[in-house]
Design a protein around this nucleic acid. Structure first.
Length: 548
RNA sequence: GCCCCCGUAGCUCAGGGGAUAGAGCGUCGCCCUCCGGAGGCGAAAGCGCAGGUUCGAAUCCUGCCGGGGGCACCA
């Protein structure tokens, strides 16, 4: 019996009580069933009586009593208590709880998937680094978190497209090109250019490419140098992200917006909507109509387009491509964009609250990190992964909510002990794998028997209940765009597993001990745990090793 | 000045209105005739301050204090 089963049962019982005239309330669509903090409060608990009491015009404890009497008759429910102000505390019987082990093993990696976001068409834009240099730690956070969020959204049934917006148009690109050109010619990089050592490397790549094409290096014009450097840098970004295990469905070039006239069309469309005004020779979007603190320029007085105009065109592109929900993941330094992005949506006639969702990521620092001279005194993704390992970096960045400023502790992340959450969880998975392997060698086979009523140890009850929370955790993580909830859940699950492992043996003690249904049934539970640990790690893009 | 984020145990951080606020580290004390001790058990220790809403607030609202970030016809 899972919390979802119980929630349905409570609703059914409630409907029955209303039909029987014992209560006069509207039956809510969903009933929240939670795992109580305190084990003395049963396996599962619901506050439904507290919430319905006012509408029923009856004290909460009385509502609870009516429901408790009926709920106690539900198959699989062992006992029901009314506690405190009116909580219903439910204990399920071991056989009913234990059935979950088999359910999970049979479902395999699909266990935890759900339909809570079915029908949602989501555009998830993240990283979107300028193609003018390497990825830094802020990008790394987005890569880890965004990729995990994409996986979690898919698991919740959403139709997700992961998109990287390439800012390959405008003054920054020109500065970038000029910087590479200067390096290529052995001249000083312009003061407002890019000074990292990687520019030297790019210049070398450009030189090699020019030579390969049989062209003159000295005579190479700025725009060609810029283009070659851009391609080299973009290729590196794609490679680094792929190595990090992060996949994008769409690499969207800002240039295409300008080249296809989409920017001008966007301005025209916004003008039709009535939110464009000409002032001081420039063309403005009246974002103040929708809560921005000042209007924003779309076309400068010299006729050139602003970055903001491209943003507007890009928004309309996402809209035209059928994405009802657009999720932007931005760094804290971009929070000022939120109001104007929402204003774009509003000017386009959309409801910004439904159409645009901006996740703001706070600062990450790494204690004792070496700054990359190559990249220009930043902490580079590539260095970080090389130093700490891909799994450690991905996991430790994905286990915190985006809006929490974090400080990573490399000393902990490189330790191979439970100091380090990623190892703690991965080790639990390795342990489940090991137990299964050895059990099979001993002749314990799941297909020979399963008697869930034997899973009656306290640690088994806790482990099963934890496993039962997984689909809800995935659904919540997706709904709130908080993949860190999956990581936190895995840590709890790993703990519950280790405790069980310590007290409940899966394999026979020695060759003389006969294999019984207890061993077989526990192997089911071990396998169920392994399945959920592996799937949870997969949702975070972290490997689930069988041996460590 | 205005806007956003944060303030929870000595440290790093979880806690989408619920019951006795959790985890890891650190400190102190335990458990190897035991599937991997890379583990487990226990102890001490906390919601920045003040109001408000509520049957109930770490959580929602207001103000204050403290820390971080942002406020271009830049990208």
């Amino acid at each position: 019996m899972t919390p979802e089963d119980l929630s349905l049962a409570v609703r059914g019982v409630l409907a029955d009580a209303v039909a029987a005239g014992e209560l006069a309330v509207a039956v809510p669509d969903t009933v929240t069933v939670e795992r109580p903090r305190n084990r003395d409060h049963g396996d599962w608990s619901t506050n439904v009586a507290l919430q319905l009491a006012k509408g029923a015009g009856v004290p909460p404890r009385q509502v609870a009593k009516v429901l408790a009497a009926r709920l106690a008759e539900v198959p699989g429910v062992k006992s029901v208590d009314v506690a405190g102000p009116g909580f219903l505390n439910v204990v399920v019987d071991a056989a009913s709880a234990g059935e979950l082990a088999r359910t999970i093993v049979l479902a395999g990696a699909a266990y935890g998937n759900n339909k809570t976001l079915a029908g949602h068409v989501v555009n998830l834009e993240f990283v979107s680094a300028n193609p003018t240099g390497p990825l830094h730690i802020g990008h790394t956070r987005w890569a880890a978190l965004g990729d995990a969020l994409g996986r979690v959204l898919s698991a919740a049934g959403a139709d997700v497209t992961r998109e990287f917006y390439i800012n390959d148009h405008g003054a920054q690109m020109d500065k970038f090109g000029a910087s590479v050109l200067a390096r290529l010619r052995g001249e000083d990089v312009p003061e407002d250019g890019y000074h990292g050592e990687y520019v030297v490397e790019l210049a070398e790549k450009v030189r090699a490419e020019l030579v390969a094409q049989g062209r003159s290096v000295d005579q190479a014009p700025l725009d060609e140098v810029r283009e070659l450097a851009y391609q080299a840098q973009l290729t590196e970004l794609k490679e680094v992200l792929a190595e990090f295990g992060v996949h994008f469905d769409v690499w969207f070039s800002e240039r295409t917006l300008h080249a296809t006239g989409a920017v001008e069309k966007a301005v025209a469309r916004l003008r039709e909507q009535g939110h464009v005004v000409d002032r001081d020779g420039a063309v403005w979007l009246r974002t103040t109509d929708f809560g921005d603190d000042r209007d924003r320029v779309l076309l400068r007085s010299d006729g050139s387009t602003t970055y903001f105009a491209a943003d507007a065109a890009y928004y309309l592109s996402k809209r035209d491509r059928g994405f009802a929900e657009k999720v932007y993941m931005l760094g804290a330094d971009h929070h000022g964009y939120v109001a104007r992005l929402k204003a774009i949506a509003a000017c386009a006639g959309d409801d910004p609250e439904r159409s645009i969702e901006v996740l703001i990521g706070q600062l990450v620092t790494v204690a004792g990190a070496r700054l990359s001279k190559r990249a220009g005194n930043i902490i580079e993704l590539r260095d970080l992964v090389h130093w700490l390992g891909r799994d450690a970096v991905r996991y430790s960045l994905a286990r915190f909510p985006a809006d929490s400023p974090i400080t990573l502790e490399p000393d902990l992340l490189t330790k191979r002990s439970n100091d380090n959450p990623v190892f703690y969880v991965q080790y639990a998975h390795a342990r489940t794998s090991n137990v299964t392997r050895l059990a099979i060698e001993d002749g314990v086979r799941t297909e020979d028997g399963f008697d869930p009523s034997l899973l009656d140890h306290e640690t088994e009850s806790v482990l099963l209940a934890t496993l039962g929370q997984f689909p809800g955790v995935v659904a919540t993580a997706a709904e709130l765009r908080e993949p860190h909830r999956v990581a936190r859940f895995l840590e709890i699950l790993a703990g519950a597993y280790h405790k069980w492992y310590d007290l409940c043996r899966v394999r026979p003690q020695n060759a003389d001990e006969e294999v019984t249904d207890l061993h077989r049934t526990r192997l089911w539970l071990n396998e169920a745990t392994r399945t959920v640990l592996a799937r949870g790690l997969d949702l975070l893009g972290v490997s689930a090793p069988e041996r460590m």
